[in-house]
């Protein structure tokens, strides 16, 4: 089912959690909401679920405005970070709960409920554990039961709130691949929240980067990494370095010299240059480059993380060099130019 979030705002006791957020989610898509804590990503997920009521705006399930529907009537599947399994019920009873509580007119036959639950158990690779209680399962197993329980009601949309957040690194990686696999097989429209960019970039069809209650960028993993649209996204996704520069007549100036980068589409004035620390080329001499003194260079495996002092009044910037580049440095001086970069005017 398609989902549309239209101009949604949410405030908690006057504290704004989301400011005028809009988002379209295509049917069958796997979407990640990515951001630091306090970015509003969990709030957005809970608004879609109906666990919170928006202060303004609407949420559409298909063509239907679901904003005022209760969570019970939205027919969603929700997976919680800490599983939220019913501890007095067996695995099977947990999975069938959503079906068993339905009114008799909408409730499948007993045998059908059981068949469906066992099928789901098989899908989440827990066959044979249907009689266990949650306390008898590992964290990873519990989360898989939670997913099976959410899918048992055949939800319009599957919502997962930091589903792997409470698990250790090894299990996390396994479950990540496994979730992608299940999504490809079942085709549920799925939205999951994470603060782990690796998880988001690896797993999702599209990533929604959020910060301070706003959506910064929506795009595929490549788009987010290669064409970040805001300083926040550039800084949040992957490694980044930045430098305060000045634009005059389409030329980028640093101090009293040009860097050798054109910025013809930007207005004159102060700006910030963003680039990936490893994505640079060293230059001989300096007719159009960034030059400075190496203050510290730490080797981590095959990469030299090098701190460069570019002059008084500027923060030190970091570049990553390979062995050849590092060996080519002479007398602690470095001159380089970023290969790929983004420039954002300072306002």
């Amino acid at each position: 089912m398609e989902l549309r979030v239209a101009n949604v705002r949410k405030e908690f006791e006057r504290f704004p959690a989301l400011n005028d957020v809009s988002l379209d989610i295509r049917s069958g898509e796997l979407i990640a909401l990515l951001g630091p804590s306090g970015s509003g990503k969990t709030t957005l997920l809970r608004l879609i679920a109906g666990l919170e009521r928006p202060s303004a705006g609407s949420i559409f399930f298909g063509d239907e405005d679901a904003s005022h529907k209760s969570v019970q009537d939205r027919n969603i599947g929700f997976v919680f970070q800490h599983y939220a399994l019913f501890r007095h019920m067996t695995v099977l009873d947990n999975i069938t709960f959503g079906l068993r509580i339905r009114k008799s007119s909408r409730r499948p036959e007993k045998a059908e409920i059981r068949r469906r639950a066992l099928e789901l158990l098989d899908l989440v690779q827990l066959s044979g554990l249907e009689k266990r209680y949650p306390t008898q399962l590992s964290g990873g197993q519990r989360q898989r039961v939670a997913l099976a329980r959410a899918m048992a009601v055949e939800p319009n949309v599957l919502l997962l709130d930091e589903p792997f957040g409470a698990l250790d690194a090894q299990v996390r990686k396994e479950l990540r691949r496994w979730l992608r696999d299940i999504h490809d097989r079942t085709g549920h429209t799925t939205v999951f929240v994470t603060h782990d960019q690796e998880e988001a970039l690896e797993l999702a069809d599209r990533v929604v980067v959020m910060s301070k209650g706003n959506i910064e960028q929506v795009g595929t993993a490549d788009e987010i990494y290669d064409k970040p649209v805001s300083p926040f996204v550039f800084g949040f996704i992957g490694q980044s370095s930045h430098l305060k520069v000045r634009i005059e007549n389409g030329e980028v100036w640093f101090h009293d010299r040009v860097i050798g980068i054109k910025a013809s589409d930007l207005p004159d004035g102060p700006a910030t240059l963003y680039f990936r620390p490893h994505d640079i080329e060293l230059t001989d001499g300096c007719s159009g480059c960034i030059a400075g003194l190496v203050t510290v260079s730490r080797r981590i495996a095959g990469t030299w993380h090098t701190e460069v002092d570019v002059g008084a009044g500027h923060e030190k910037i970091e570049v990553s060099l390979n062995a050849d580049q590092s060996a080519a440095l002479k007398g602690g001086r470095i001159a380089f130019r970023p290969r790929h970069y983004r420039i954002f005017p300072t306002n």
């Binding site: 666990l51 919680f80 970070q81 399994l85 709960f97 959503g98 509580i101 939670a146």
Partner: peptide
């Protein structure tokens, strides 16, 4: 009592 458990029941359609 974990509030998430109550929310989980509600998301599954429980009144």
């Amino acid at each position: 009592i974990n509030r998430e458990v109550e929310e989980a029941a509600a998301t599954l359609g429980a009144s």
